[in-house]
Every structure is written in structure tokens, then in C-alpha cells.
Simulated scan of single mutants.
Amino acid sequence: MLINGEEKTLQQTTTLDALLTQLGYRTAFVAIELNGNIIKQKDFSSTTITDADKLEIVSFVGGG
């Protein structure tokens, strides 16, 4: 699969929520595009990810 343009190997099918947690992202602070479609945060736990998917993850960062 592609994650932010980098080739990654997904060992097994998983949910988007589980993958984000595994990668160290806080799900409340990210926007996700999966295969060209924006995924709502409420759907992270029910969205299945496979090794054939293309995922773009954008993190929100505060500052001032």
C-alpha cells in the first residue's frame, strides 16, 4: 500500500482506526484521504484497509 507516497507492506487487512493507532497518529487530529475519497472521523473504525489501498494522512498541528 501507499501511505503518503511511501510504499508500505500491510501484514493483514485492518481498520483505518487500528492502522492510524499503530502508526502513532492521534485520530482526532488527522484528515484522511483513502483512494481519492475523504473519510470522516466517525467512519475510521468501520473503514477497512488492504494492501492495495492508497492512503494520504494529514496531521493538524497547533502553534502560535
Rank of each mutant, 00 (worst) to 15 (best):
N37P: 00
G63C: 02
E7M: 10
I49E: 03
L2T: 11
V30E: 05
T14C: 04
G5W: 13
A28Y: 08
V58K: 02
V30I: 13
L20Y: 11
T13F: 07
M1E: 01
I49K: 06
G62F: 08
I38M: 07
T9C: 00
S46R: 11
E56L: 15
G5L: 15
S59P: 05
S46H: 10
A28Q: 11
F29R: 00
T13M: 05
A28C: 09
T47A: 00
L34S: 05
L2W: 13
R26Q: 13
L23H: 01
Q22L: 15
G64T: 09
L23K: 02
S59Y: 08
K54D: 10
L20M: 07
V61S: 01
Q11F: 00
I32G: 05
A31Q: 13
I39C: 00
K42W: 02
Q41E: 12
N37G: 05
A31T: 13
L19D: 04
R26M: 01
T47C: 07
T21W: 11
F60N: 08
G24Q: 11
Q22D: 04
N35S: 00
T9E: 00
A18W: 06
N35F: 08
R26H: 09
I49N: 00
F44C: 06
A28M: 09
I32W: 10
Q12C: 00
R26N: 15
L16I: 11
N35G: 04
Q22W: 01
Q11Y: 07
L20S: 02
V61T: 00
T21I: 15
A28P: 03
G36K: 07
T15H: 10
V61K: 01
K40T: 08
D51G: 06
E7C: 02
E56I: 15
E7V: 12
E6I: 13
T21Y: 05
F29S: 01
G24E: 09
L34P: 05
G36F: 12
A31D: 10
F44E: 03
N37I: 03
I39N: 02
L16Q: 06
V61G: 02
G62V: 09
G63V: 13
G64I: 11
D17N: 12
F44N: 02
I49M: 06
N37Q: 10
L19T: 00
